[in-house]
Write a protein that binds this DNA or RNA. Structure first.
Length: 428
DNA sequence: TCTGGGGTCCTAGGACCC
DNA sequence: TCTGGGGTCCTAGGACCC
């Protein structure tokens, strides 16, 4: 969406855009698969499926990331590996089975998060060099505020910001060796949608003043924050596109969806005043695990909960986190999610207590078949020493805010956006 | 698409307090 | 005894995101 600038007077350089921010959204393309290709270059150009819970040769697990070549066969994120294998057999299997065509087969690899994090660290180093403020959303995604590094000014028919974004993208490609899609816009939400608009290997620029036109023809699900449920409800109201949403009566939207509705309506109109702010510390820590089949066996359930409780407590300790609330999640067939939690009088870090409380909460589901169990601690507080050290970093005066570990102390921001430590590639 | 794991934010009712 | 309005905390569930 470069160009399309009818408003600016010839010879007038950029006055109108002076206070427009420049936000980049950088989104790695099928990141896990790209990482696998990095260490195994023969996978380039081949269908690659990275599965979690997948072990070489086994049919269990779920698709974490599929390369675009694999997606062409109908392999998608979150799909069971067994289903992916039906659409795209394993290379090795295809070579042994005369009924299969090895050229119509793919490479399956288990998730190796440690390795992906190493690659992500290299990318993030570049991002922090390219921007004063970076918000890391997940291993493979970040927002950059580059307002002070470039401009919307149009030179040779292109905004300078486009060249800058290209520079960021090319550095990642050249120095790390993985492809990225980049969106550039005056707001976070528009930048996000822009990076998504031409994947993979895309670069989409939405200039100030063009945001609403950019959104207008897109399906309403393209708006960040509109999922299947909201899209369906909006559809019932005759709202199919982002343009429809922008044009809809704000009161009607708000009546139906509350405060969130107003936010979505604003975004469809190109309004989003969230600032790019470094990722804060986590608000909860959890771990969950699914049974291959729903089980009502009390000993298996208790064993699972105890294991998860130990993991979570361990992770919290590693992060120096104290917690005041301990909870469990139990998913019963067909897929009913139940949560139970208990708050303590004060913050603790106590593995034995996590175990005790979660096992006690589990008794409510005694005799029920469950297909998945989870343990969560929340109401986190970080240890005093840690707190002081980190607070020292976020010194506004010296401008040394470093991003990753900077505190997220509440400021005037209305919504804080989503921040997740998710490891999954987006579903497309 | 019957469903993997780790997060965030919002809403709504009830308890409790002043 | 009847009843007001406001605030906070806690819990459970829901929607969404990657």
């Amino acid at each position: 969406m470069v160009g399309g600038d009818g408003e600016r007077l010839p010879g007038v350089v950029d006055d109108a855009a002076e206070d427009d921010r420049i936000v980049c959204h950088v989104d790695m393309d099928c990141f896990y698969a790209s990482c696998e290709r990095l260490r195994e270059p023969r996978l380039r150009g081949e269908p690659v499926v990275v599965g979690m819970g997948y072990e070489s040769g086994e049919p269990h697990g779920a698709v974490a990331t599929a390369s675009y070549e694999a997606r062409a066969y109908g392999v998608e994120s979150a799909q069971p590996i067994s289903q992916a294998l039906e659409r795209l057999p394993r290379k090795a299997a295809a070579r042994e089975d005369p009924a299969l065509d090895p050229s119509e087969a793919g490479h399956y690899r288990p998730v190796d998060l440690e390795y992906y994090r190493e690659i992500a660290a290299e990318i993030k180093e570049i991002l922090h060099e390219c921007a004063d403020r970076v918000r890391e959303v997940s291993v493979d995604e970040a927002y950059l505020d580059v307002t002070d590094r470039t401009a919307w000014e149009v030179v040779d028919d292109r905004p300078l910001a486009e060249g800058y974004a290209r520079h960021v993208k090319e550095r990642i490609g050249r120095e790390v060796g993985v492809p990225a899609s980049v969106g550039v816009a005056p707001t976070m939400s528009a930048a996000k949608v822009a990076s998504d608009h031409d994947k993979p290997d895309g670069l989409v620029v939405v200039e100030p003043g063009d945001v609403r036109d950019f959104f207008e023809p897109l399906p309403v699900e393209a708006v960040h924050g509109v999922g299947p449920v909201t899209a369906r409800k909006l559809g019932e109201m005759g709202v199919e596109t982002a343009g429809d949403l922008a044009a809809a009566d704000p009161d009607a939207i708000r009546d139906r969806f509350g405060e969130r509705g107003r936010t979505l309506h604003d975004r469809a109109r190109g309004r989003d005043d969230r600032e790019v702010r470094p990722t804060g510390r986590p608000k909860s820590l959890s771990r969950e695990s699914a049974f291959t089949e729903a089980t009502a066996a009390a000993d298996r359930q208790r064993e699972t909960i105890a294991g998860l409780a130990a993991d979570v407590a361990d992770r919290a300790e590693g992060k120096g986190a104290l917690y005041r609330t301990i909870g469990i999640k139990a998913v019963t067939p067909p897929y009913d999610v139940h949560t139970r939690e208990r708050s303590l009088p004060g913050p603790v870090a106590d593995a034995a207590l996590v175990r005790e409380v979660t096992l006690d909460l589990l008794t409510e589901f005694a005799g029920d078949p469950v297909r998945k169990l989870g343990v969560r601690v929340s109401n986190l507080q970080f240890e005093a020493a840690e707190q002081a050290r980190l607070d020292g970093w976020g010194d506004e005066a010296t401008g040394t805010r470093t991003g990753t570990e900077t505190d997220d102390a509440p400021r005037q921001s209305s919504t804080d956006g989503q921040s997740s430590l998710a490891d999954f590639d987006r579903q497309e």
